[in-house]
């Protein structure tokens, strides 16, 4: 495997892991459940997307045969992440979870 491919894989892995970590930091640092929804559902999904892209490049370079089935996981995560975020937001509104003081606008009654 050439140095360039290895560098690309390493960079993608680090970017992906970085976004995954940022998503979880958001989960811990943000103030209420509605803002916490933003971190994991998107930063984490993008992070996993980066790592999976790295895996795709790595196995394609390693075996010399195009290996694209990893794309399925990314595709699936990108389709499902909004659905789970939407359902969790609805759940939070239904249970009337506390929101931070500075929030403008009101959640709907469920």
């Amino acid at each position: 495997m050439s140095v360039w491919v290895e560098g690309l894989v390493a960079a993608l892995i680090l970017i992906g892991a970085g976004f995954t970590l940022v998503g979880s930091i958001g989960l811990v640092r943000l103030q209420d459940v509605y803002t916490r929804l933003h971190g994991p559902t998107k930063a984490t999904t993008l992070g996993v997307g980066g790592i999976i892209l790295a895996s795709l490049v790595f196995f394609t370079a390693q075996t010399g045969v195009l290996s694209v089935h990893e794309v399925l996981i990314t595709l699936f995560l990108f389709i499902t992440a909004p659905v789970s975020a939407h359902l969790l937001a609805k759940t939070a509104m239904h249970r009337q979870e506390k929101k931070v003081q500075s929030t403008r606008g009101e959640p709907w009654q469920q």
Binding site: V33, R36, P40, K98
Partner: peptide
């Protein structure tokens, strides 16, 4: 809140996917 816990579990399973894919690259 309970919603927080479910959200955290959701994040955990996505993280575990990342971990498994990384492990696959590690073992080749």
């Amino acid at each position: 809140s309970l919603t927080d816990r479910v959200l955290a579990l959701d994040t955990l399973y996505i993280n575990s996917i990342a971990l498994i894919v990384l492990f696959g690259i590690y073992l080749g």
